[in-house]
Design a protein around this nucleic acid. Structure first.
Lengths: 183, 183
DNA sequence: CGCCGAGTTGAACTGAATCAAGAAACGTGG
DNA sequence: CCACGTTTCTTGATTCAGTTCAACTCGGCG
């Protein structure tokens, strides 16, 4: 259960603390790990499965993010702030997760400086991903966005319904279909 | 020189370390604080002035961010990762800055756990701002984006040339002009 | 078998970009 | 303090990428 190793090496003492707040568990397809309007106190390492992060804009779902095996998913807008999150997290497949109770380990920040580092690295990674997404959307046409996704996450197109992909790319499902049809 | 207080309270010892790596300075209008392709080792607290963060997409400038008095500006994509940054930072007015040499204080992370926290909070704030920006762009029309900016940062429109505003809102300057002309 | 969700295709429409031309404001040196 | 060039902003005409609405196909499954 050393899935955090690739983020930052932890000393034994810190590792023990973290492990005491981790729970391995299964989640069913369509299960919601988090709902908008709640405070998020956990993050999840995905051992198996795909997660989708989305929100509502005028009762239309907008997909903000996908997370695959080996990635961590959470509502970062809430986790580190205590604010109510705007996001839903939904599993798109039957999944296996390691869920970390962040609110528990957060109390130990002062005693365990490595935890601050862990948090910092976690959010830095997410910042960089979000930064990429902004650039993806701001300076590319619908077709370019599709092709970039194809390069960067080809597995996405095998595993995720196209309406979610379309919404992630910020294009309509019809347009996505037409782009794909070009081959 | 306690501009970091609003981010997180620091103990005296940490405060002293930070203060030793801060330099107050002036910057002229159009001065570049940072260039793309370099590693960013500083962040700047803006006492007076406005900064613009931008990058190039096919030799066209795209404005990613503005920072006003009381805000901190940096190339976050590089500061916490050591990667080469994609961004330029330009002052839009004659300015007064407190520039923090982050690479110096970073070496002291293990001795000064509060610094990790400072870094974490800094990047969390930026994450949240970026998150807002994604939503701004993804689910709003050009006119809605303009009106939201008008609400959230009315001073922007007084102080920043409209072509930069347009690029920040991801619309053409002509469209922005037409939207403004509606009143 | 017939329904249902997922994906495709077509036709009409539209928000915003682009191209082009000017007008206004700005600042810099004589 | 004025004149001239540059930058900033506006306005008009045209074009286009992508949306919307609607109908249709296909594959799975109770």
């Amino acid at each position: 259960m050393n899935f955090l190793d690739h983020l930052t090496p932890l000393d034994e003492r810190t590792k023990n603390l973290v492990e005491r707040s981790v729970r391995k568990r299964k989640a069913k397809k369509r299960e919601l790990l988090q709902q908008a309007g709640t405070v998020c106190k956990q993050f999840h390492f995905i051992e198996k499965g795909v997660a989708r992060v989305y929100y509502y804009k005028d009762d239309k779902e907008v997909t903000a993010w996908f997370a695959f095996e080996g990635m961590i998913v959470s509502c970062i807008d809430s986790l580190f702030t205590g604010n109510l999150t705007n996001y839903y997290i939904e599993m798109l497949e039957d999944s296996v997760l390691y869920t970390v109770q962040y609110d528990i380990i957060e109390k130990s920040f002062l005693d365990y400086p490595m935890l601050e580092r862990l948090g910092r690295i976690l959010i830095t990674d997410n910042y960089l991903l979000l930064d990429q997404r902004v650039r993806l959307i701001v300076s590319h046409t619908a077709e370019e966005r599709y092709n970039l996704l194809l390069q960067q996450a080809p597995q996405a197109l095998q595993r995720i319904p196209l309406n979610y992909i379309a919404s992630y790319l910020n294009i309509s499902q019809e347009t996505l279909s037409r782009i794909r049809g070009k081959y």
